[in-house]
Design a protein around this nucleic acid. Structure first.
Lengths: 221, 221
DNA sequence: GGAATTAAAATTGTCGACAATCGACATAGG
DNA sequence: CCTATGTCGATTGTCGACAATTTTAATTCC
């Protein structure tokens, strides 16, 4: 009668470790290009190498690490070129997903989104970039999840994690947290009006904002 | 002095087995929904279960199998709904990739493509659907590979394998092999003319051809 | 001193065994 | 008869050990 996944779902160890490692990557406890040695990880996490291998396979799937046969697995290095690729892909997917999501967004969803936006405002005022990025991810993923295409959702998940990691590793951002927040506020309004054209334009703006304003030092400032 | 990957690169066993299993799925030696039991596979392939596990993780990555913790791994079941999702994604990606590829396609590439087309013609006349599908995959993947975005390439690889599997499992096709071939010939001509607009339209047509003409029995026949 | 060889250490690939869990059946109790 | 509980076999999760390979260090030879 109370057999169902008792609060803490009993997931395989490998998955838990994979998540832990992902956090470590977010927090730069392991850096780009760093080699991950199975035996060491096994000792640190106090599990067998088989389990570590499973965890690494999961991370590899999300492209957070890359492994070459018999050469080892390394934390993926994201260059600016990679960011370009990611953004191109992201733009394509997100533009489509958002428009499709419009058909499915109902009142309760808008409330959820609004509360994310509200949190963003707070974190923006505190200048807390890391929290801001997490909320950003939540916001976009939430909308994409409403698009109705499970494959699009899955791909977006993967790509957004990568972008998240990329941003986390930057040591400086060339824009203010508040304008980052304002971006989302405008996007939210376009969603509320169910204005397809406007939504597409805003998405496009938003992504180029990340690329050009946030990451690169532009002259026009 | 001749140590470099001697012709046959020494890849991990798990990868080889994953490929073998993929072929088995193509050829319907294993069917949709079928459960894959690690111990049995280990015995059949005469390797340890660890190796089988690795192979299954690879297939899971390509979404050809699905595995639930402690429940086992099953060959993915693709419904018509899945085909819809796949095509939507494919359309999005391929339209973008082809247009981008136009910038990079040179004479030798066109020759490669033409030879694929020529083979298609032959197989079409023999009514050999399976070979035709393989060539179809080759053709599209070849062009997509020229788009210059490694992430787009990777995603397309995954999605096209899935579509390939879906088509392989159909027991009947509602169109002629020759018209399937002709589709590609037209696409090829659009590529040769580097006519962006035409390429986009042709891609769109081609994908809806697969969905509506090849798979579904339409009345307009 | 430096390039080529060889030896040693570190690391990944593969294996077989045991533990934990699941599913089906049998059995007991109402 | 139906439901709950216990048991057993089948299957997956995890482990530690050995084999194969790569990387590093040491040695030899020019």
């Amino acid at each position: 009668m109370m057999n169902e996944d008792s609060i803490i779902a009993k997931r395989p160890l490998g998955e838990l470790i994979a998540e832990h490692l992902k956090q470590d990557i977010y927090n730069q406890k392991v850096k780009f290009g760093e080699r991950l040695i199975e035996a060491d990880l096994a000792e640190n996490f106090d599990v067998s190498r088989s389990t570590i291998r499973e965890a690494l396979k999961i991370l590899e799937q999300e492209e957070l690490v890359t492994s070459k046969a018999r050469k080892g697995t390394f934390v993926s290095e994201f260059t600016e070129r990679d960011l370009d690729e990611m953004n191109e892909l992201r733009l394509m997917i997100e533009a489509k997903a958002f428009v499709k999501a419009l058909k499915n967004l109902e009142e309760p969803h808008y409330q959820d989104l609004q509360s994310i936006i509200d949190e963003m405002k707070e974190e923006a005022e505190n200048g807390n970039w890391n929290a801001l990025f997490d909320l950003d991810m939540q916001f976009h993923q939430y909308v994409v999840n409403m698009c109705g295409n499970s494959r699009i959702i899955k791909i977006y998940e993967s790509i957004s994690v990568q972008i998240r990691v990329y941003l986390a590793h930057l040591d400086q951002y060339y824009s203010s947290p508040v304008s980052f927040y304002r971006e989302h506020k405008e996007l939210m309004e376009a969603l509320l009006h169910k204005d397809t054209v406007s939504v597409e334009r805003k998405i496009k703006n938003h992504i180029s904002f990340v690329e050009e304003k946030l990451v690169r030092k532009t002259d026009s400032e």
